[in-house]
Structures are given as structure tokens and as C-alpha cells.
């Protein structure tokens, strides 16, 4: 079964104070060469039926456009991930 992964990021021109706070904390763990940190949100969607992957992508795009991202301040990207494979990747 396929999973659709939606990554939502603040647009480049929108200030990300949360990312800045993380960047400012990095010297405390000895990291001094980071110029920018930006924080986004990853959303994983699984459809109940085993629909055509292209159809799933289209529906996920509609969901992202309407609800998951606010087009005024955010961009999103969409991709398919195999349920098993991607989990393993995430664990290694």
C-alpha cells in the first residue's frame, strides 16, 4: 500500500522565528557553521482504498491545497512513499 507524503514549508520570504531559535541554540552543542534553519511540517496520508497512485497524488494535492498548507505563507511538495520501505529508511 502506498502512502502520500506532504511536506509543508514556510515560503522563503516568511520569517521563521522557530527556525531562528533553533539556529541560535546550535552553538551550545558546538555547531558554529550553520547559516540558516527553517522548520516545516511533514504530513503522511494513507487512503483507505488501494487507489491508483496518480489518483492518490491528485487527491492529496487537493487536500494540501485546501487544508494542509496556507498558500499565503506556505509551499508544499507531494510524493509517494512505499509504506514498508520508507519506514525502514526512517529507522536507519
Amino acid at each position: 500500500m502506498a502512502r502520500v507524503v506532504v511536506d509543508v514549508m514556510l515560503k522563503p520570504e516568511i520569517l521563521d522565528p522557530q527556525g531562528q531559535a533553533v539556529a541560535n541554540a546550535l552553538p551550545r552543542i558546538g555547531v558554529d557553521d550553520v547559516s540558516s534553519v527553517r522548520i516545516g511540517r511533514r504530513v503522511e496520508i494513507e487512503f483507505a482504498d488501494d487507489a491508483d497512485p496518480q489518483d492518490q497524488l491528485d487527491r492529496a494535492r487537493e487536500i494540501a491545497d485546501k487544508l494542509l498548507a496556507n498558500p499565503v505563507i506556505e509551499d508544499f511538495t507531494i510524493r509517494l512513499a512505499e509504506t514498508g520501505g520508507d519506514r525502514e529508511d526512517a529507522l536507519t
Binding site: 514556510l10 516568511i14 520569517l15 522565528p17 522557530q18 531559535a21 496556507n70 499565503v72 505563507i73
Partner: peptide, 17 residues
């Protein structure tokens, strides 16, 4: 109201957090 597009723009995290 901003999310509903009845008003333009958006409200984001306070700059100083």
C-alpha cells in the same frame, strides 16, 4: 477569517516567539 480568505494575509508566530 484569514484562513477562510474573508480577509487577506495571515497571522504567524510572534517574531520574538
Amino acid at each position: 477569517l484569514c484562513e477562510a480568505h474573508l480577509l487577506p494575509g495571515a497571522l504567524t508566530r510572534n517574531q520574538h516567539l
